[in-house]
Design a protein around this nucleic acid. Sequence first.
DNA 1: GTTTTTATGTTATCAAAATAACATAACCAA
DNA 2: TTGGTTATGTTATTTTGATAACATAAAAAC
Lengths: 217, 217
Amino acid sequence: MSVTSSREMVQRLSNYRSVLCKLKALGFVKVFSDNLGDALGISSSQVRKDFSLFDLTGNKKGGYQVDDLIGKLNVILGKNTIQKIIVVGCGKIGTAMMNYNGFSRESIKVAAGFDTDPTVINPRGLIPIYDLSDLQAFIKKEQVKIAIITTPESGATRVQDLLLESGIQGILNFTPVKLKGSESCVVHNVNIEQEIENLFYFVNEMKDGSPKNPNSE
Amino acid sequence: MSVTSSREMVQRLSNYRSVLCKLKALGFVKVFSDNLGDALGISSSQVRKDFSLFDLTGNKKGGYQVDDLIGKLNVILGKNTIQKIIVVGCGKIGTAMMNYNGFSRESIKVAAGFDTDPTVINPRGLIPIYDLSDLQAFIKKEQVKIAIITTPESGATRVQDLLLESGIQGILNFTPVKLKGSESCVVHNVNIEQEIENLFYFVNEMKDGSPKNPNSE
DNA sequence: GTTTTTATGTTATCAAAATAACATAACCAA
DNA sequence: TTGGTTATGTTATTTTGATAACATAAAAAC
């Protein structure tokens, strides 16, 4: 069961699930590794290999049962329980995260926001916003495991320290500071400036004549 | 000159530049591949290999000149000119992107926003917001190359079609729809729900006893 | 009931990316 | 000037991940 899985692998699992849900909505009952490979732009071997690693079995001729796959993927990805998160830093991006519509459908719930600015603090809001000094107590009381950091750059490392002390196990970091993960905490850095920079590089490279296309994720 | 460079490679180039700028601020004049490797959590061989591919040369003993490296990386990454972008979809996340402070420092400028909702359209704003019907004319007139998509899920593919028709060459997509790149247009998908899902997977995996840590980007 | 077809599950092969190893040139010390 | 040291730049090795190949079992056809 305990599979050593890379980031890319888990992303593929998410993608499989996403495609399967769409197929289910279309009335599909079974699906073949060929179909899924085409949908994700990968080989059917890869699909079968991924599935076999996670004991997602099919039928020697009839392919895979859509419903069955979705169910098993839900368990693997933890989608059968509400995934509670907090947002630290309630500026523009932080607020957008707190009110992001896409979360509810994926059973992700923002339990609270945190900030240092007294004017944005509002413990009685639909999603309460507390002072940063309440962060650690909240995490421990509510047993929060995942946090989004959307503070200004200057606050990022301090907030990470606070989060690690309180036992947070996963961080999604939207600040341009590259935070390092550890044994006890996984970190995903989303650096928006860098994404743009990266795109400009490839655009300029195209212009130079060598339209070498990178994988789009 | 025409190097076939992967996404990861360009990200490393960005990271080198970022660290080098910080070192420069600290007064560093020269730097060794060892230092940079440590800072990015990679081997020094990797650093030297990356540099050699882009003709970033050092001195057989004295390491690399910080100023020189930054200058050359700026050219490679196109940071010596203003990088003009547009934002399509001016909801919460889109608005946050338009007003994102981090862009100016990286010489990225949001030229305009676009939306279908008449109540948010404001062609006289500091950053003008136009109706979606003006999108294609604007791109052609202003020769915009890069766009950020922050529409609701339902609008994503339609907007992509519009963008491709007008000759956009790079897209940063924040909708949960996985957009596909092409020969003429590079796409980077940032799927927030999926990032959270991914983190929960690793957190749950840790709990199961195998704290296999993935690379944090 | 036998044969043929087809898609899985696994093994083998291939490709790419990262690390390690090393030969070389610059610097320093005596 | 000579010998030792050190960090680069390139080549070799290793590791990792993806694809391809194939043997197997189930369904369909006859």
